[in-house]
Amino acid sequence: MLSRYKTNLNSKQPILGVCAAERTIKRLLKQKETEKITSIKEANKYANISLYFFSAKDVDTKRRRIRGVYYNEKKSLWEKAQFPYPNLIYKTSVLTDKLRVHLLKKKVKPLNYLNGFNKWEVYNNLSRDERCKQYLPLTIMYNSPNDLFEMLKTTDTVYLKACVGRQGKQVIRVIKLPEGGYELSYLKDRLYVHKIDNDNDVVNKIQSFFGEKKFLIQQAIDLITIDKKIVDLRAEVQKNGKGQITVAGIPVRMSQNNAPITTHAQSYSFDYFFKHIMNYSDIEVKELKNKLNQFLNITYQSIEKDYGPIGEIGIDIGLDKKGHLWFIECNSQSRKVSFFKAYDKKTINESSLNLLEYGKYRIKRNV
């Protein structure tokens, strides 16, 4: 039988429930933490909120109870217990629409956006903001094969992206070859590259890949490259305890050879990459960082205007060979893989602390 509330719950502080994968909860009970969980746990020594972790199946909607896992500081062990509904929820894994709606109706405030962002919806929202237009690559919805081939008359390379999809698993790069035909490439368990001679076979391959999913067509950005590896940036942007937008870090990602995207990439801290690999001067690094901070603040504000208060967003950015910044996409549930690879524990823990303090801010200010 589970202990009930024999936990670190502090009635004077908000309760944060972190929704994690079922396998993550099982691992915690075997005393095995992910790097992200360790960071949140360490940050909470300073934030001192009531904190527990749970999977979607642990929620009892009839009794309004959650069978969760918490860290028992006295025993230095992860243990099971029953908890009331939290004041705040941080989503790091799947949450069904039904459960999401239920928790929101019970006035549980989300720290991050509980739905995945729809890329086409976000693009349209940002395109209505005059400040954001300069950062948006040409993008259209795929409604028929003609849309693709008309786009390829104006540019040799496009990306096809599922409107809803994560980790680059629903992305194809299409290159119109100068000698005729096309090259299609995508990442799944490995890099796949197909040379296709005619239009009909291209369409069949694309439709087989996406199935019934809706997808968009986006003009390729002429990204900076190093030895046939494309480079982009993933900014981890968040709110702090004063409700202010802050940039936790901007890891730089370098793809595999000839890969269409930077998933499973090498990662570098922003300063290291631009100073030691790109050989930027200190002044050039500072100027680029200022440009990025302006871009990120504008983009974050614009997204919040449409989706409501958000504690953190992962924003993918392209830097082209002329130095122009481009919005690639945003992520409501960043796994922070590149951030954890590229930055030190102090920076990572400060990021987690900002998120927890923002949760306290939301409750205190009722925002």
Score class of each variant (00 low, 15 high):
K6Y: 13
R131T: 13
I37G: 01
Y182I: 09
Q266V: 12
N87G: 11
V122Q: 02
K213P: 05
V193L: 10
F273M: 06
K291F: 10
A259C: 07
H194Y: 14
L104C: 04
K30R: 14
T96C: 04
R253S: 01
D320G: 03
Q333P: 05
N258Y: 14
M151T: 11
I363H: 07
A259G: 10
K98D: 11
K57D: 15
W326C: 02
N349W: 08
L77A: 10
R234T: 04
E121Y: 05
T7W: 03
G241A: 05
V202Y: 06
K345T: 13
K213L: 15
E312N: 12
S39T: 08
V122T: 14
L114N: 00
D344H: 10
D271R: 12
R234F: 07
C132D: 01
P110N: 01
C163V: 15
D282G: 12
L152K: 07
M1H: 09
R335I: 10
L223K: 04
K36G: 11
V252R: 08
V122D: 04
Q244R: 12
I224Q: 07
K62T: 11
S352D: 08
R65S: 10
E22G: 02
V252I: 09
P110I: 01
R234D: 07
M278K: 11
R128C: 15
K205F: 13
S208P: 05
K176G: 09
Q134P: 02
A47T: 00
G17F: 05
K188I: 07
S127C: 09
V174I: 14
Q301Y: 09
I37W: 01
K62Y: 14
C163I: 11
I277A: 10
N349M: 15
R131F: 10
Y300P: 07
V101K: 13
L292I: 12
K105A: 12
I250V: 13
Y123A: 02
Y186V: 01
I172V: 10
I315F: 08
K62E: 09
Q167N: 12
N293R: 15
Y343Q: 07
F340N: 11
G168W: 03
I196Q: 07
I221C: 07
I317T: 01
K12T: 14
S39M: 10
V174E: 08
G168F: 04
K341S: 11
F273S: 03
C163S: 15
N204P: 03
L9A: 07
K289W: 14
H194P: 08
E22L: 10
T61S: 09
M141P: 07
K239E: 03
A47D: 03
L103S: 04
W120T: 04
K133P: 02
Q13R: 13
F270S: 03
R64N: 12
W326A: 02
A21Y: 08
I172D: 01
V171M: 05
N146F: 13
V231I: 14
T246M: 03
W326H: 11
I250K: 02
G165D: 04
I89G: 01
S351Y: 09
L288I: 12
G68T: 01
E236D: 09
V252A: 00
T34M: 03
K336L: 12
L177K: 10
K214V: 06
Y186G: 01
H324P: 05
A265S: 12
S208D: 13
K161Y: 00
Y142F: 10
